[in-house]
Design a protein around this nucleic acid. Structure first.
Lengths: 238, 238
DNA sequence: CTCCCTATAATTATCGATAATATATTGCAT
DNA sequence: ATGCAATATATTATCGATAATTATAGGGAG
């Protein structure tokens, strides 16, 4: 996450695995995670686990409360909206930079990535692969935009978005939506080619706005069902 | 930083002090900081210091490299620009939210804060107090905007900006600039009162853009002098 | 039966020591 | 004198144990 520091240290490896577990909903929102439990899982002392917790907490996926442990945060309606607003804004910043910094070979590579994405959405209906391919395009732009801090922040936000969308990925993605977003990616590329930062910013936002409206309804549905399902029995504690 | 977690734990306290030291340039950019040194300074073991380093590293002010320690990052021209772009974008997001969530009493309080700021800039020429008052206004908006993640990110970005501006605070701030930015704050408040998110977004950006153009020249000067002063002798290593 | 206080158990926070790693230094061969 | 290799040193990474803290369960009073 932070400028290619080697992931050889245990705390980084553990943090990455925990993050992946949370984002893929193997560890559910609201769940408490204990140092000891994780330490035993990885056969290490709890010291590196503590540091891993700090990493994940700084990403924002868990909340560490002193002498209690850490618990995964939950998905809320206004959080979803907030993440999207941040995502649009920060992706806009990065694309603005990218419009002036991307080199010709990088643009060529980006064109290929987008073409691959456009082809993928017509070939398979595995929505997780669609998402992965889409994320690959975004990550490529971020990586080569010359952004440092902005790249880190965008990565974090995109991680959050991935987490929130994971549970509804199968619903909101369709062939037509895939084609349309591929088209929007091509528009963005055109802005890069034209070296037009303002246009890149606008089109980056437009791309995510499309995603925003596509995901709004299914996510709303999910959250409604979720809250109706768990509130009657009483507060969950585990 | 992360949702009112108690600052009673040592690692949090140490992290906060280190952050303050860096932002106020008592620990200079590029400097290496050692666990042992900090541990002795606070009369603690180095375990909490490690965690504090993780905190500061996740903020982005230092870079932890395995088996080497941590070093404060340096100020670069493109970083300055990047921070401003992020700041504008994220402040825009938060103000967009604030336009719909700020309550009437909060708006009244905000009006007072802005008035205090406007008065302050005409009474004292202590530029650090100007900055502090300005930051108070921004922090108030962020705190009551209803933003969670966005607030955290904005806080981090504002911290970065404070760090980069600290060294030129005396140069870029003038009575006229203070008056003009107070006016821009009032415009922003008007957008809040009108409950107009789009306008709030635009005016938030305009406010920071004003600061951006005001700081650009002095900061450029500083960086030029800085690089001319240190490059001839050779690479710094401490 | 409910509420409050106390004792216990579970968990984290901190410490001190040891192992692992990278850099700097020294000696040697060229 | 210079470049390379082995060694020495300094520093971090990890571990195991102890101290500090919180939540909980149980008992007693109202």
């Amino acid at each position: 996450m932070a400028a290619e520091s080697d992931d050889r240290t245990q705390d980084r490896q553990i943090a990455d695995i925990l993050i992946e577990d949370i984002v893929e909903w193997r560890i559910l929102p609201g769940a408490w995670i204990r140092e000891r439990e994780i330490a035993e899982r990885f056969n290490v002392s709890h010291a590196p686990v503590r540091e891993a917790f700090r990493h994940v907490a700084n990403i924002g996926l868990i909340n560490v409360v002193p002498w209690r442990g850490a618990h995964v945060i939950e998905v809320h309606r206004h959080t979803v909206n907030e993440v999207f607003e941040m995502w649009k804004a920060m992706f806009g910043v990065v694309c603005r930079l990218a419009a002036t910094t991307l080199t010709e070979p990088q643009l060529a590579e980006l064109r290929i990535l987008i073409a691959e994405y456009a082809e993928l959405v017509t070939q398979t209906d595995n929505t997780f692969e669609h998402l992965a391919a889409s994320n690959r395009v975004g990550a490529f732009i971020a990586r080569h935009s010359g952004a440092g801090l902005a790249k880190d922040m965008l990565d974090r936000i995109a991680l959050f978005a991935r987490w929130q969308h994971h549970v509804i990925a199968q619903e909101y993605f369709s062939i037509e939506a895939g084609k349309e977003s591929a088209e929007l990616y091509r528009d963005l590329l055109a802005a890069f080619v034209a070296r037009d930062p303002d246009s890149a910013d606008r089109r980056a936002r437009a791309l995510l706005r499309f995603l925003q409206v596509k995901t709004a309804a299914p996510l709303e549905d999910y959250l409604r069902r979720q809250s109706e399902a768990v509130t009657p029995p009483g507060k969950v504690k585990t």
